[in-house]
Design a protein around this nucleic acid. Structure first.
Lengths: 412, 412
DNA sequence: ACGACTTTTGGAGATTCTCACAAATACTCA
DNA sequence: TGAGTATTTGTGAGAATCTCCAAAAGTCGT
């Protein structure tokens, strides 16, 4: 039996593994220690009994994403991030999680990591909880040491990444040398992924982002950095069969999670083309900034576009707008249709717009407009008459499509 | 009988009508005198027998166009324009033309008009021909008087028109005043029609053009002028139901006739929008010059376009080209397809081009490409795969359409 | 020259689209 | 209000398109 005053974790341990073993020994249950991003730092080895969640954590050296997700949804992680008290987690068989108790490791107002104790042989008592608190206190110093080491490393990463982004590092061998030194395996193809935030990213948010990136298991992120309101990721695209689909999926995932977990909304994702040469990273960076610039100008129109290629007409929308503003051009067909709409308060313009945006598919457009296909047909005939349009002429249709978009934008 | 030496037309006549009557009296047949543009100047009245062509000429105060056309085709007018001798014309019942003899009236190397003698009561003899020569000589002076008067008038027309074109005349009442003074009825709506020639128009060509315009009966031309290599017409559009169709027809007619009759080719027609206010004539003129400028830049692409509205994407093709040249953009889909074409020497790009230009109509495009519709279908699927194109997305299709046109133009 | 692969062509059948017509309803102007 | 016009909806025939499948022809690398 353990005395209340005596602290079994006071002595200096060689390593976190040693501490994990000691905790395990004292509490008589398997123990794992994770950093704030749920990466495995240490685990006890004396006890062979464990659950499947712990096994995958140890094998993958990180907590599986679905487990993290579950712990978020069900409130454990949010609780751990707000209190210094141990939290008991009920068994969750669907993700292979047995009964366990967790406590967060704090340095001032910041969580450095977590200690998990599995309640396999016994249920932890109030006394055990008190011991856990002491264990967490003891782990803190070890984690801090790790963190300062990590921070120094982090700085070297940052410097390297910015040199690449700004084109200050362009000799192939030099770049590879740096990758090697930083222990990163450079992918043979990559894209640059940029998330633009509404406001500059605070250090608190930076932690959250970092957490989300570290816990994500979708993409191989070689390097990342934050610059004012932009999060910049260098992502490997090796062995990806459907690159842009995957990237889009990740972008949506990230945006969704940021909103769900941290209530940060209005994040604009964007990604460069695929590049093969790291000396082109500057170009990739310029490309993403160009996309962002266009997306910022036409947010509604380009809502679902993330790459330069897919910008389509919005690539040159700006110069068209400028030209339009500088001359007193008016699309004759749209003018006539507008006048007709005004006079008969109909909506031929809207009809035309939907029709063109639905790729001149009558059925689809009719559905959107909530009218019978024949009605749409009739309207299109009237539109062709009134606007003197030949719907068989792609040049005319394209002109209408573009002019409609320009007008819509000018009216806003 | 008439003496060879005696000239019955030597005395001074009060008017051309008097001369016509005298010729008619001497030759014993109906006589008409026309100017170089086949406008009726005078006709004999003593004889009541005549043919239907003469009747319509007198009624309309000009020779009907179909008669002129026939006389061109069949060689009479060209002959009259080269020789000072009388020419005999065979009966042409299909246009109501009886037997007749014509002679041209010359001043130096220029034809001022024609005298026509109908052989109704008798066939003209060699002696009569000699008389006709004398009659033509006698008519010359009268015609010259008319012409100087006409030239003076012409100058006033020119001055007025240029004032309108350059915007130096913009007060409604003043403009109407001028119209009235010049005895022109101002139409309530008008367009400006400009024909651009390859070279500057010579005074010889000017006569031909003038001839063609004066004899045309399709359009009401209020004013016209020639400036270097441009023929500028102010055309009434009153009572025209299908304005641009009519104008196009006339433009084709004019271009065709200039080529057929005078061997002048490569004439580019162009017309402004419809205007209602004569103070906007300057704007109309600017408009036509803008169209011509674009057509000169992209002659092949805009071959069949005559109005600003119909220019469509070519309105801003120039700025797109500039942008393209200044950046190193490459359409990913086209790049991929180009590479594929190169490697497999296929023609996916061409297929795509035809398909898009045929308004994505599979049957039409297949016909142009000389392949089975299923083949085209197959190719389109491959194109969508290789170029990662979604043919349901209008933005993507439009981008391809435009990028194809830009590339085609850049390659030339 | 062989086999693997791509491309072309043809046809049958299902599905979708288009078009003309008719009837019903809405709107307009005197 | 009532005739005349504009608009919407339904129906059905015919055209066009899509989906399969299969055979033939062409291409490429070895």
């Amino acid at each position: 039996m353990v005395n209340h005053v005596y602290d079994p974790f006071r002595s200096d341990f060689e390593s976190l593994d040693e501490l994990a073993d000691r905790i395990s020994q004292v509490l008589e249950c398997p123990v794992t220690i994770e950093d704030a991003n749920h990466r495995l730092l240490a685990y006890s080895t004396h006890d062979e009994r464990t659950d499947s969640a712990r096994i995958s954590t140890i094998i993958g050296r990180r907590v599986p994403e679905k487990v993290i997700n579950q712990l978020w949804k069900q409130g454990t992680i949010p609780a751990l991030l707000t209190t210094k008290e141990p939290i008991r987690v009920k068994e969750m068989n669907e993700i292979g999680l047995g009964h366990r108790v967790a406590i967060s490791i704090w340095k001032q107002e910041e969580v450095l990591g977590f200690i998990w104790a599995l309640e396999i042989n016994k249920s932890l008592t109030e006394e055990d909880f008190s011991l856990l608190r002491k264990a967490a206190e003891s782990a803190k110093n070890k984690l801090l040491q790790l963190q300062t080491r990590k921070n120094k490393n982090e700085e070297r990463f940052q410097e390297f990444f910015w040199k690449l982004l700004t084109g200050h590092l362009y000799i192939q061998e030099e770049i590879m040398e740096h990758f090697h030194t930083l222990n990163i395996i450079p992918a043979s193809s990559y894209v640059l992924l940029v998330f633009q935030f509404q406001q500059n990213v605070t250090s608190k948010e930076e932690q959250n982002i970092s957490y989300l990136l570290k816990t994500n298991q979708h993409l191989k992120i070689m390097l990342y950095t934050i610059d004012c309101n932009q999060l910049i990721l260098l992502v490997s695209t090796d062995n990806m069969q459907n690159t842009f689909k995957e990237l889009t999926k990740f972008a949506h995932f990230f945006v969704f999670k940021m909103s769900e977990r941290y209530n940060i909304t209005n994040i604009t994702p964007v990604f460069s083309s695929i590049y093969y040469d790291y000396s082109h990273l500057k170009k990739a960076y310029t490309e993403t900034r160009e996309i962002l610039s266009i997306k910022n100008q036409f947010p509604n129109e380009t809502k679902n576009i993330y790459t330069y290629q897919r910008l389509g007409i919005y690539r040159f929308f700006n110069i068209l707008l400028q030209k339009r503003k500088s001359e007193d051009y008016e699309n004759y067909a749209l003018k006539k249709l507008g006048e007709y709409d005004q006079k008969h308060n109909s909506n031929l313009i809207e009809t035309l717009d939907v029709y063109l945006n639905k790729d001149t598919n009558i059925n689809d457009a009719a559905k959107v407009l909530n009218v019978h296909a024949n009605t749409l047909n009739y309207r299109l005939k009237r539109i062709a008459e009134i606007g003197e349009i030949d719907f068989k002429d792609p040049n005319q249709k394209i002109t209408l499509y573009i002019d409609l978009k320009l007008e819509k934008h000018l009216r806003m």
